[in-house]
């Protein structure tokens, strides 16, 4: 049968040909003729295999753990998503514009209003809401993880020396590299999308929290000690408040990085604006990709300006000595109601 099927009519070799070149073990070959002058012809350390084994082992034995991690992420995400999808667009736009007015002023309020209306008009509203809930979820988890870690490494040099290389790795490893393991551990969908986003967006928050606390002037620390501050009082009354602008910058960075991760995350079936872009590229539908892209840019600008204003707001308030409830739309309501009471 074998010979008959052979159209060339040649004799089949006595030994079966080595056809499994796909899994060809080049290591053994190289080890046989090791050349001192060209030691790196073959792979001497099978790092790839180790990683694969480790990953498989983790998937087999710890799948439960990773499924458990899903639960809080999934809960927060679906809650936010339901919330955002349930709000009528008109109400949402008005609320956001009012919020922008409150924390930054009328200029940003107008910008926010225009940006959101444009996103709605070009037909990316629902996708934006998905993206927004993804971004918010990842920022929430980044803060839950990042702030305590940042505080910890600010207080302990040893912790800092352990965690900083990990942060370097998180920031420099291309997202594609951990996309696959994350899918193997968490499956596909929005939850692993959030996990991937957290990995990418967490480091700046930790770094800037650490930096902010370490930059608190030494004399303020001395003052607190000399007036009898306990370590907790020092943290909450002095270090965190003084570091707050830097920490706010970290939160702003985390938010921006989360948004930029949205396109990558869509490769593992994460919905939202990123998926519009990815689908557009896949189908060479430049229109669809542009809609997604514009949506991301507008959303990014609005969120960036709003969080930045949040960081600056306190300082401005100090200077003008105006209470927050006497400014913006709330201030308007406040003055109106106060006038009525006086009448």
């Amino acid at each position: 049968m074998a010979t008959a099927a052979n159209p060339w009519g040649t004799q089949a070799p006595a030994t079966p040909p080595n056809n499994d070149w796909l899994i060809n073990d080049s290591n053994s070959k190289v080890l046989h003729h090791f050349d001192w002058l060209n030691p790196f012809d073959g792979t001497l350390v099978p790092f790839d295999k180790w990683v694969e084994h480790a990953l498989n082992w983790t998937v087999e034995n710890f799948r439960g753990v990773f499924q458990a991690i899903r639960v809080p992420v999934d809960g927060t995400l679906s809650m936010l998503e339901n919330f955002f999808q349930a709000i009528p667009p008109t109400v949402f736009i008005v609320l956001m514009a009012l919020l922008a007015w409150q924390i930054a002023g009328k200029k940003l309020a107008f910008g926010t209003f225009a940006s959101l209306v444009i996103i709605g008009l070009i037909g990316a509203w629902s996708e934006m809401m998905v993206t927004l809930s993804l971004v918010f979820t990842s920022v929430i988890f980044c803060m839950i993880i990042g702030l305590p870690l940042g505080i910890w490494i600010a207080r302990s040099d040893r912790a800092s020396s352990i965690i900083r290389p990990i942060l370097d790795a998180m920031q420099t490893t291309p997202a594609f590299v951990y996309l696959v393991p994350v899918v193997m551990l968490f499956g596909i969908g929005n939850v692993p999308g959030v996990v991937v986003t957290i990995i990418f967006a967490l480091p700046p928050l930790i770094r800037l929290t650490n930096l902010g606390i370490r930059q608190v002037p030494e004399d303020l620390i001395e003052v607190s000690q000399s007036f009898g501050a306990s370590p907790w009082q020092m943290l909450f009354r002095v270090q965190l408040p003084v570091a707050m602008p830097t920490i706010m910058a970290g939160i702003n960075q985390t938010l921006m990085l989360s948004l930029s991760m949205v396109v990558f995350a869509s490769m593992i079936a994460v919905g939202g604006l990123g998926q519009m872009v990815l689908r557009g590229i896949g189908r060479l539908d430049m229109g669809l990709a542009a809609v997604g892209g514009l949506g991301i840019v507008l959303l990014a600008v609005v969120l960036d300006r709003m969080t930045q204003a949040l960081g600056l707001r306190e300082k401005v308030m100090h200077r003008q000595r105006i209470k927050w409830y006497k400014k913006g739309p709330i201030g308007l309501v406040y003055t109106i109601t106060c006038k009525k009471e006086k009448k």
Partner: peptide, 30 residues
Amino acid sequence: RREKISMVFQSFALMPHMNVIDNVAFGLEL
């Protein structure tokens, strides 16, 4: 430190995020 000894520093070292009265009351608050 809270009750018997207080200190005045060369660099003033006032808390930038507190107003004057909160700064003065800082030791008492602790």
